[in-house]
């Protein structure tokens, strides 16, 4: 093989490399650059080494936000994935019901994220909101602006409302792709409904579930707009998640150095978790 022929390949990918460089790599390098400097102004900056990283990693406020974030993402996955699979199994397989169900499911996904927050802010208000008033008239003392448990509950329900559709749609597509012959063979083999789910549907959904879990984890781990509009992170900092802490630090306090260090740590945590999920699901198959 003539080696020179392959030199062309590099030239062909150059446009992509340039676009990615401008859109992702250069901003990221800027952040890396900020994270090791103390910046007072355009002309007065000092190299501080790993100082900001040490500070960020020891910050108790950020530890709190991280713990809340992990609990939130775990709750989201535990609720939305099984619920999504279950509802996808209940969806109609053909007829006009399909289009109807698909449109209905797509609606929450089409609403802009901050509007979702606004909708729920009004919906859940204990004085005028339908949900808030109903809960209180049932004798429950519900007030998401005052009680941190109520705030958590509201944020979670809002996220389930907003995002379960995505899991349902992915699973529904996965289920539709299973050939009829599998169901027919299972009937002939005398398989129960549970066995059909356990041995046919679940294994065939593995691919889409991997995508669903990764997307739901990443989206929920960097959730910002909805709780920001709904609770503003409160009461106190009960629903302050990582991205909101970061925004406060970078835009509110203008601490560019620590915020940059924090961003990088945040990014690495998401990357690490995603990689672990990816490996776990891929390897599930090899055991047993």
């Amino acid at each position: 093989m003539d080696k020179r022929e392959y030199q062309w390949a590099w030239l062909m990918v150059l446009p992509v490399v340039l676009i990615v460089a401008f859109s992702a790599i250069m901003p990221l390098m800027t952040v890396v650059n900020y994270s090791v400097q103390d910046i007072f102004g355009p002309d007065s900056r000092f190299f501080v080494g790993t100082e900001w990283f040490k500070e960020v990693l020891r910050d108790p406020a950020l530890h709190g936000a991280l713990v809340r974030q992990i609990i939130f993402s775990a709750a989201v996955l535990f609720i939305q994935i099984p619920l999504g699979i279950g509802l996808a199994l209940c969806m109609p397989k053909k007829g006009i019901g399909v289009s109807f169900a698909l449109v209905l499911l797509a609606l929450p996904l089409l609403v802009p994220w901050n509007v979702v927050g606004t909708i729920w802010q009004v919906f859940a208000r204990p004085d005028v909101g339908l949900a808030g008033v109903t809960l209180n008239s049932l004798g429950l003392d519900y007030n998401y602006t005052g009680d941190s448990l109520d705030a958590w509950f509201t944020v979670l329900v809002m996220d389930v409302w907003h995002w379960t559709s995505l899991v349902i749609l992915l699973c529904y597509a996965g289920l539709q792709a299973i050939p009829d012959a599998f169901y027919q063979a299972a009937r002939i083999d005398g398989a129960s409904r549970w066995a059909v789910f356990r041995y046919i549907e679940l294994p065939k959904l593995k691919g889409v579930l991997l995508i669903a879990i990764l997307l739901r984890f990443i989206f929920s781990f960097r959730i910002y707009a909805e709780p920001f509009v709904l609770t503003g992170g409160g009461p106190g900092n009960a629903t302050t998640f990582l991205s909101q802490s970061l925004t406060t630090m970078a835009v509110g306090q203008f601490d560019l150095g620590p915020a940059a260090a924090f961003s990088l740590v945040y990014f690495l945590i998401i990357l690490l978790f995603s990689y672990v999920f990816y490996l776990t699901i891929l390897n599930m198959d090899r055991e047993g």
Binding site: R187, I188, D189, Y199, G288
Partner: peptide
């Protein structure tokens, strides 16, 4: 009678196997 009560075996056009077993 449904297929499971008919004592019939059927082999389909594409192999149907239970992947995880």
């Amino acid at each position: 009678l449904p297929p499971e009560q008919r004592n019939i075996g059927q082999v389909f056009q594409f192999p149907v196997i239970y992947d995880t077993m």
